[in-house]
């Protein structure tokens, strides 16, 4: 714990130095950039609502990723799982109508379809020993195409010019808004996300399954000797982590939009990887890390307008540098930098 906190501080410092230098190169004051980001993400209710909404998405997906990463896996499929689960929720809702049964099915549809994608990943990983990164990457592209196809050919809203489905009945709004202002996206699934983080921590550190996950991740041959089936652990953890990413449909569809818009996701699934890494795979740290990245996402959107040279893509640079700094801080010890000896990769810890 102490060690991971100190690497976190160290890497945040390196990252901040890098980024400050970059701002100076661009001729902007770093202090002003920070000011703009904070001003536009937290200081009034409307902005704060968007920030909380983003962080809800990140918490769901990142908690799932923490579980998978503890098992030594590095799935990057959350992006596809999020969009497919949101689409499934909307489609089930549209087809079943606002009966109690329909609402119940819509609630289940998101996590279940995402879990299905997780099961596909697990099949390839366990039965075909394919690398989960490749499989989930392909599944991400496939999900995007399938979602585009379904929306444009079957569910396109006749009232809208944008590629999106029709709107669900108001009865589907199961998660009430957090703020009384009209149309703010933050909703009560935020609390669910925080609960999921705590639950994730509890499962990982206090249950038998969590122990098995960590055992497989640390040393799977030892785990096998103590009677833990690697295949079973990998399968279950991939399915559960996908289902958690699928909970995003609560936030996006049942809590806010009530319709599926093509391309609604602002790379939540990929950002969640960064969040999980920064949280050093601890679901409890996911809560502040998600909030931090949500602030970056929301705040940097205004950088285009308020500065001359820094664009909203700056957040991508920030993410990139932060992961890099973080992984470097974990890996580098200065002696090895100058020696000719290769360091053995500690399996897939990074």
């Amino acid at each position: 714990m102490i060690r991971s906190l100190s690497t976190l501080t160290f890497s945040a410092l390196i990252g901040a130095l890098f980024l400050g230098a970059l701002c100076l190169i661009a001729g902007e004051s770093p202090v002003r950039v920070v000011e703009i980001v904070i001003q536009n993400s937290m200081l009034n209710q409307e902005d704060l609502a968007v920030t909380l909404f983003y962080s809800t998405h990140l918490m769901f997906a990142a908690t799932g990723l923490c579980l998978a990463m503890h098992a030594g896996l590095f799935p990057i499929g959350a992006e596809g799982q999020i969009s497919i689960s949101c689409l499934a929720t909307t489609v089930v809702g549209l087809l079943m109508g606002p009966s109690p049964f329909g609402i119940f099915l819509a609630l289940l549809a998101g996590p279940l379809t995402a879990a299905g994608l997780g099961a596909v990943t697990a099949y390839f990983k366990v039965k075909k020993s394919s690398h989960e990164v490749i499989v989930t990457m392909m599944l991400n592209f496939l999900s995007a195409s399938v979602a585009n196809y379904l929306v444009s050919h079957f569910f396109q809203s006749s009232e809208s010019q944008n590629p999106e489905t029709g709107t669900l009945a108001p009865a589907f709004k199961l998660f009430s808004p957090l703020f009384s202002l009209a149309n703010t996206p933050a909703n009560s699934s935020f609390y669910l996300a925080i609960a999921v983080c705590f639950l994730g921590w509890f499962v990982l550190s206090r249950t038998r399954w969590g122990y098995e996950i960590r055992a497989v991740g640390l040393n799977h041959s030892v785990a096998a000797h103590s009677g833990i089936s690697r295949a079973r652990v990998i399968t279950t953890v991939l399915i559960v982590s996908a289902a958690l990413a699928g909970l995003s449909s609560f936030n996006q569809i049942l809590g806010y939009n009530l319709k599926y818009q093509v391309g609604f996701s602002a790379d939540y699934g990929f950002l969640a990887i960064v969040v999980a890494l920064m949280a050093s795979r601890n679901p409890l740290f996911v809560i502040p890390a998600s909030f931090f990245f949500a602030i970056l996402m929301k705040g940097s959107a205004e950088l285009d307008i308020d500065t001359d040279t820094i664009t909203r893509d700056f957040v991508k640079i920030i993410e990139g540098f932060l992961i890099l700094a973080f992984v470097l801080a974990q890996k580098i010890d200065l002696k090895s930098l100058f020696s000719r000896k290769r360091i053995d990769d500690e399996s897939s810890r990074a």
Partner: peptide, 22 residues
Amino acid sequence: IAINAILVGLIFNLLIAGIAPF
């Protein structure tokens, strides 16, 4: 430095996509 090569690749994609508009 022996960072997981897949992670390095992902960082590469992210950084270049971010730095390009800059």
